[in-house]
Design a protein around this nucleic acid. Structure first.
Lengths: 211, 211
DNA sequence: TAGATTGTTAATCGATTAACAATC
DNA sequence: TAGATTGTTAATCGATTAACAATC
């Protein structure tokens, strides 16, 4: 089977959010055109992507069953099976992520938090205990955790990354502004605020020019 | 002149970070090949993008002057002129963004924080004062702020967005997991964690399959 | 039946990569 | 001079959009 494109994959969560809204408003059916309009997308893209993830498919004239689509997209995105993750770096951003309730809905479960700062370890800035970083390898190994979240300052990010890989982590979600060096069999997703800001900033410039 | 692509724009900040690293290590020259290797990019992409932003250009055999490139990319990305922004929502994520020192380097200055929670307004979770949301329109107007950052829960994001637009904000950086409804003359950049996680998660699945 | 909507094939568009002459 | 590297043109690849038959 053909693979889904990265772009499509990134759009699916937004479909899901919209579908859940519809469901809460007791809307039972929706057309691809409607979804496209609401999310500012091309209707053909939406149709293709829905055709890709939906077994049931839609019916001409009536569209798709909202409940059905919610189930199918959730399952396609793997929201039903829990994915364990560890997070290293319990500063402000780390704490914010740890406290974020939304991850449950995505099937992501942060099973342990690490920081090398003794003060943070004792204060328990979140409801979860914070362990010393040296305990990470053993825990990751024992619990067979595959996802690591990095929220440490740039200068220690690579070190943390190396330790994660040594411990058996296979996917790294990197929130520190550094380009990590990793072997090719490790998945890395950089959350690059500077990149986002660059795009937003250029868009703004264009808008201001046209006024 | 032809425009730079969105993809290129997103890559430039990572070039800049690498160039600054080189500069700190007293490296004076760098080739596009070297940059490409370090950032896992195609060397032709890098050459094209550098040709686009650099007036000075590179010299065959020696490459580009690191200091020169740093200046040129910084200026291209507008890091030298300060862009004022307001942020609404001083919860955990909002506080983390407010406290983030890195924005200075990108020319982004958060000039005011807002929240409708009286408790947050008084505790000053950051070093900056937190104002009541009702004071936003006047301040945005007086200071001619164009960028608004949304870090409120989903259910109030649209409301905040509308108020920002009314106040004269033209670019919105949205950290809440909602699709905002906005007119076409407003720039919106969604920071969608679910989208990132979807990509990372599929990459991980592929890696685990091949083992 | 008429019309809205699906699903798919074909056409277009844009970004990435390959190839190569120019040059320090 | 030889070789590394630039800058650019051409070829490829993939994603988006247009067009349209099928169908409820």
């Amino acid at each position: 089977m053909e693979e889904i494109s990265k772009e499509s994959l990134q759009r699916l969560p937004s479909y899901l959010r919209y579908l859940k809204q519809l469901h809460e408003s007791n809307v039972t059916h929706v057309s691809s055109t409607n979804i496209a309009e609401r999310l500012y997308l091309n209707p053909v893209s939406v149709r293709k992507e829905l055709a890709f993830v939906s077994v049931a498919g839609g019916k001409p004239k009536t569209g798709f069953k909202v409940v059905e689509l919610i189930k199918e997209i959730s399952s396609f995105l793997g929201y039903n099976n829990v994915k364990d993750a560890v997070i290293v770096g319990v500063g402000k951003l780390g704490s914010a992520l740890i406290g974020y309730k939304g991850f449950d809905a995505y099937g992501l479960k942060i099973v342990a938090c690490f920081d090398n700062n003794k003060a943070i370890q004792s204060t328990q800035s979140s409801d979860k205990p914070v362990f010393d970083i040296h305990k990470m390898p053993d825990l990751v190994n024992r619990l067979n955790v595959k996802i690591g979240i990095i929220t440490v300052p740039s200068n220690s990010a690579q070190e943390v990354c190396d330790l994660m890989i040594e411990s058996g982590i296979k996917a790294i979600w990197n929130f520190s502004p550094t380009q990590l060096v990793t072997p090719s069999n490790i998945a890395v997703k950089n959350e690059d605020m500077a990149a986002s800001l660059a795009v937003l900033s250029k868009q703004l410039d264009k808008i201001l020019e046209n006024e």
